[in-house]
Amino acid sequence: MLIVSIVGAALAAALHVYIFWMESLAWRGPRARATFGPATDAEVEATAPLALNQGFYNLFLSVTTVIGIVFALASSSGIGEALILVGTGSMLAAALVLFFSNPGKRRAAITQGLFPLIAVVATVLALAV
């Protein structure tokens, strides 16, 4: 079950690095505009600082998750699993907030939360064994 946890966590981390890129580095570009919805140039500029900050949250959760994966592969101390749960659990919680707070973004919330959900469930099951 730990392998499923690690694969789910790695996919979640990769997706959230991509989200970081779109929010923090490519916010003004066509891909981010297509992903996050149509916006005027003024709206894009007004929200750029918020998107930059939010993107870095996604990056930091990815980094936490990757460090957890490294520890889980290198040690049996439980530190890796704990970090995987912190990173992917936070990703999952954010997806749930999006899902329940914005019905128009439910598809995005499911996309954002699927790999973290797999990682959280598999990590908990791996720890229970």
Rank of each mutant, 00 (worst) to 15 (best):
G29F: 09
F36R: 00
A9P: 03
M1P: 12
L83W: 02
R107C: 07
N102S: 14
S62Y: 04
A51E: 05
L50H: 11
Y57M: 05
P38S: 15
A108P: 09
L92H: 05
A39S: 15
N102L: 10
L98I: 01
A10G: 04
A108M: 13
F20A: 01
A126D: 07
I67E: 02
A12S: 10
P38M: 09
A46Y: 07
W27L: 09
A42F: 08
L83E: 05
F71Q: 04
L117T: 01
A122M: 09
L15I: 03
A10T: 01
E45S: 11
P38R: 15
V86H: 11
L98C: 02
A94W: 00
A14C: 09
L85W: 06
V17K: 01
V66A: 03
A82V: 04
E45M: 06
W27I: 08
V70D: 14
A32K: 06
V97N: 10
G113W: 05
L59M: 07
G8L: 03
R31T: 03
L15S: 10
N58L: 01
G29C: 08
V66G: 02
L73Q: 14
L52R: 15
A39C: 11
L83M: 05
G37Q: 06
L83Q: 04
L50P: 07
T64H: 08
A14V: 10
I118R: 12
A48E: 14
I110Q: 13
L25Y: 00
G78L: 07
V44I: 04
L52D: 14
A128D: 15
V44N: 08
A72I: 00
K105A: 15
V66C: 03
Y18N: 05
F71E: 06
V17W: 00
R33Q: 15
V86D: 08
I3L: 15
I79K: 14
I69A: 10
L73C: 11
Y57L: 03
L98V: 01
I6K: 05
T88W: 00
T65Q: 01
M22H: 09
W27D: 11
A95P: 07
L127M: 13
A82E: 11
F100I: 04
A34K: 13
L92C: 03
N53T: 10
I79H: 13
G8M: 03
A74S: 15
I67L: 04
Y18S: 06
V124G: 10
M22Y: 09
I84G: 00
M1V: 09
R28Q: 12
A46P: 09
P49I: 02
V63A: 00
L92V: 00
G55N: 05
A12L: 02
I118K: 13
E81H: 12
A82I: 03
V121F: 12
